[in-house]
Each structure stands twice: as structure tokens, then as C-alpha cells.
Amino acid sequence: MGLDIMTVNCYIFVMEEKKYTIQDLCDLSGYTRRTIRYYVQEGLLEPPAGRGRGGFYYDSHLKRLLQIKALQDKGLKLAAIQELVKGRERPELQPSRELWVKYLIDRGIEIHITRELEEKERKKIAEIIRVARSIIESGGKGHD
């Protein structure tokens, strides 16, 4: 089934995003596990992906932790950081120039892909786009 192929392909793509356990996150950020759990509890950090405490964390989690740490090093208290981080959803976004490629799948459906992808990943995306288009073309049934 075409849908399955698409799901599998997307899954492979997601799987390859770097995953961290909570212990990895501790080692990389310098925070204790207690502190990381506390930040999740307080909404400063997104909960891990997957079920409950055993879930995984991604680069976005690590980035957020390092951002909190940088603000703490500047002398900011957690309450102030919380306001900063929650107030502007993505305060880490710096004005920058990025190139994105837009693929039209069908009318009203687009897939946007950053240009900063590795060759291997780009090939996978191309496959996803191809599969997506064929699903649409076949009226949602997909093809082998």
C-alpha cells in the first residue's frame, strides 16, 4: 500500500533525527536530571517524545537547555527566563538568511524543505515527495 510506503519513508526520516536519552541531555547540558525533570514540569522544556519518563529528547530540547543556561550565566533568574522563553515562543531565532525549497504536491498542498540537508537526506525527501504526489494522483489509494 502506498500510504504505508509513505509512512515508512517519513518514519525513516524522523528516526534519523538525533535522539537523546535524559542522561545524554544531562551530560551535554551539565544540568542534573532533577533539574531537567523540573524544567519539563514547569513547562520550560517540552516533555520528551514517546511514553512518559522513558521518552526521548531531540536537538530542540538540548538547544532550549543551552539557551536557559546561557541566560542563567548572564545572571537571569529562572522566573525571568520563563517569561522570556514562554513569551516569545522562539526567542532563539536570530535574524538569518535561510534557503528553503517549495515543492507543490497538489493545489493547496506544499512541502517546504530546507536547503541545508545532506545529500542522503535530500534523496529521501525526494522519495517522500514522489510518493506523496503519486498518492494524490491515484486519488488517495497510492500505488505499489
Binding site: 542534573t32 532533577r34 533539574t35 523540573y38 536557559i68 529562572l78
Partner: peptide, 8 residues
């Protein structure tokens, strides 16, 4: 007052 390991 200082925060202890980032916890107020």
C-alpha cells in the same frame, strides 16, 4: 538569592 542547580 542564588538558585541551586538552576532550581529556584
Amino acid at each position: 538569592m542564588e538558585e541551586d542547580d538552576g532550581i529556584p
